[in-house]
Design a binder for these strands. Structure first.
Lengths: 176, 176
DNA sequence: CGATTTCACTTAACATGTTAATCATCTGCC
DNA sequence: GGCAGATGATTAACATGTTAAGTGAAATCG
């Protein structure tokens, strides 16, 4: 908890003008930096996905399904990084479009097991070339080594924050 | 693409086998890395914001408004990095809650000028200490220098991609 | 001027993010 | 076996993301 308030005070003089240089500090916050970077990346992919009638999340799910034979919904949510409710809706739609197949797990009827269909695979194969070309272009422009370094730093950040959450819970704040 | 199919039977311990190293390449893509990192960051802030009845976007807007006297909607969308329709809805709600004030520009009745209200300022001041403490904690955990380097790399990436878009348009694809 | 086009929003419509509640099954314990 | 609590998945409700269409005001051009 010990935290010295050092650069938190600089906001007074950062607001030197209040009219020009609109919120330099704010737009440079970490969440904003990450948001803008991700948006800049996705803006490259969205048109191609859209041409094939897929949203970004639908693509993530189908893409994930190509790497496994079948997978339970909860596990799919984890790998595709979607919350349960979003995944539920999307799976319903993808199933209606016959891009995926779903069945109940024999040993536990609560669990649903999902897999990609032949039609879904065909769709993926139609989109993949463009996507990979875009990804290659990004890698080329930014630099493969730099890109790897960036992703490494993002991974470290992610793990730092998970550790931070754990640290915050080990007191007695599990009250509800 | 090649991934050896293990087993999806034996539901109980399938979780054991399947959860290790599934789709390594996919979950390591740049968009996923950025998404997970940002989510890990925002997960730290959301509870505090929620306690004050604010969403992330509402906070972004109010926070942006504290750095200027008044600002036009389009410009606010640019700084807070929100699309017009989202901003329209949020401004409507914030205005109903009397956290902001809105008036038409004298010189151009199409434009609306927004500013934060006294009530909005008070709310910001109530939330800011916690937010800044969290941000300081993140900075401390990850390292201030490393954080600055990360944000710099994100900025470079963003500019690379903008340049990439421009390059894609300079042929004749401005057809409708 | 006056019609047309452009511009600054705003609405509409649909998909997802987010949290809470619901539902069905499962598990542990008696 | 049966019941209370845990668990997997879905549904509900509201907020935002995203693209397209609509609205009113301003700029442009004939």
């Amino acid at each position: 908890m010990a935290r010295k308030k050092s650069q938190t005070e600089s906001s007074t003089e950062t607001t030197e003008t209040t009219r020009r240089a609109p919120m330099r500090d704010f737009s440079r916050s970490l969440p904003m930096s990450l948001l803008r970077a991700r948006e800049a990346v996705m803006r490259q992919f969205r048109p191609s996905l859209r041409n094939h009638g897929l949203t970004e999340q639908q693509w993530r799910i189908l893409r994930a399904l190509t790497t496994v034979d079948a997978i339970e919904v909860t596990e799919l949510a984890r790998v595709a990084f979607l919350l349960g409710p979003s995944l539920s809706r999307i799976l319903r739609d993808l199933e209606a479009r016959q891009l995926i197949e779903r069945r109940a797990a024999k040993a536990d009827l609560r669990r649903a097991v999902v897999s990609i269909s032949a039609k879904g695979l065909k769709l993926i194969e139609a989109v993949a070339p463009t996507s990979e070309a875009i990804y290659a272009e990004i890698t080329s422009r930014y630099g493969a080594r730099k890109l790897a370094e960036l992703q490494d730093m993002l991974g470290v950040l992610e793990r730092s924050l998970v550790a931070m959450e754990v640290a915050g819970e080990e007191s007695g704040e599990i009250e509800e």
